[in-house]
């Protein structure tokens, strides 16, 4: 009942660099985001490969040889793991971004996610075919 202003709202600051340790769901989100480092690094590596190819056969052979080093193999395995994780997490949320309504009902999320996995498999197969693996 005072005439003077008694309000003094208190603002709790969000810790800028440690907020994601607060909840498991934030950790999962950060893990998904961190995958981009490996995917980015792998993309760079591919670009280097293309550059080496343009520089001539010897350079390209040397590049391929370097890829066979244990460090490179470990990196590739890591990059593969992270990109699969990234892909899976994105595919799993595609029903949110791309809902499909047929008549009154929405397609179950599993169908949309499944379609993405199927597309992924088909594309991968096509790439492998073109690469002459089979």
């Amino acid at each position: 009942m005072g005439e003077k202003m008694s309000r003094k709202p208190y603002v709790r600051e969000v810790p800028k660099y440690s907020w994601f340790f607060r909840r498991p769901r934030y950790m999962r989100y950060m893990a998904r985001e961190v995958t981009c480092i490996f995917i980015g690094a792998y993309t760079l590596l591919l670009l280097v490969g293309v550059m080496r190819l343009s520089q001539g056969q010897a350079e390209y052979e040397a590049f391929l040889a370097a890829l066979r080093s244990p460090v490179s193999v470990v990196f590739h395995l890591l990059a593969l793991g992270f990109s699969v994780y990234n892909t899976a997490t994105w595919f799993n949320v595609t029903p949110k971004a791309l809902p499909v309504q047929i008549g009154e009902e929405f397609l179950p999320g599993g169908v949309i996610t499944g379609a993405h996995y199927l597309g992924w498999a088909v594309l991968s197969l096509a790439v492998l075919l073109m690469a002459g693996v089979f």
Binding site: M1, G2, E3, M5, S6, R7
Partner: peptide, 9 residues
């Protein structure tokens, strides 16, 4: 009327 957030009439 009382403003709840400040308590002022």
């Amino acid at each position: 009327a009382i403003e709840m957030r400040s308590g002022q009439m």
